[in-house]
Simulated assay, not measured.
Amino acid sequence: MEREKIVSIVNGFLIDEFEVDGSEIYSQAPLKQTLGLDSLDYIDLVVIIESNFGVKLGEADFKRMVTFDDFYTAIQEKMGEKELVS
């Protein structure tokens, strides 16, 4: 899947499901501060990512994410790994 499509899907569910202001979502924005999610929200986020992309992000993945760009990259990398295994 192309990165632009990943960005579009992710931004769409962040705006719709988590009520994030779309103007605050850009590649170098600080992910955790912008989202302001609690631990239950992160569980919901993992479930939504899995249902949209067929990959699962774990705690270690989230720990290394600083920006939205990191978030998109992590999803893209996981999808690439899945394609290699399939």
Rank of each mutant, 00 (worst) to 15 (best):
residue 39 S to Q: 08
residue 57 L to F: 03
residue 34 T to L: 12
residue 34 T to I: 12
residue 12 G to T: 05
residue 54 G to Y: 01
residue 1 M to Q: 12
residue 25 I to D: 01
residue 48 I to T: 11
residue 79 M to C: 06
residue 37 L to Q: 07
residue 33 Q to R: 14
residue 52 N to M: 04
residue 56 K to Q: 03
residue 64 R to I: 08
residue 3 R to K: 14
residue 20 V to Q: 08
residue 72 Y to M: 01
residue 42 Y to C: 00
residue 8 S to T: 13
residue 62 F to M: 08
residue 30 P to H: 15
residue 72 Y to K: 04
residue 16 D to V: 08
residue 2 E to L: 15
residue 16 D to K: 15
residue 60 A to E: 10
residue 85 V to T: 05
residue 66 V to F: 04
residue 10 V to H: 02
residue 26 Y to K: 09
residue 12 G to D: 14
residue 1 M to N: 06
residue 25 I to S: 06
residue 83 E to K: 02
residue 5 K to T: 11
residue 31 L to A: 07
residue 41 D to T: 03
residue 31 L to H: 09
residue 82 K to Q: 13
residue 14 L to F: 13
residue 13 F to V: 13
residue 80 G to L: 02
residue 24 E to Q: 06
residue 22 G to R: 05
residue 35 L to R: 12
residue 45 L to E: 05
residue 12 G to I: 09
residue 32 K to Q: 14
residue 62 F to Y: 12
residue 79 M to L: 08
residue 54 G to K: 01
residue 1 M to G: 13
residue 6 I to E: 04
residue 61 D to P: 02
residue 60 A to M: 05
residue 13 F to W: 09
residue 19 E to G: 08
residue 7 V to R: 07
residue 54 G to A: 01
residue 80 G to W: 02
residue 34 T to A: 14
residue 35 L to P: 12
residue 73 T to R: 04
residue 21 D to Y: 10
residue 70 D to E: 03
residue 71 F to K: 00
residue 52 N to W: 06
residue 6 I to M: 08
residue 66 V to N: 07
residue 77 E to G: 00
residue 64 R to H: 05
residue 13 F to P: 14
residue 39 S to D: 13
residue 56 K to Y: 07
residue 42 Y to T: 07
residue 84 L to M: 11
residue 64 R to C: 03
residue 20 V to F: 09
residue 81 E to I: 14
residue 55 V to D: 00
residue 51 S to R: 14
residue 11 N to Y: 14
residue 37 L to H: 10
residue 20 V to P: 09
residue 28 Q to N: 15
residue 33 Q to K: 15
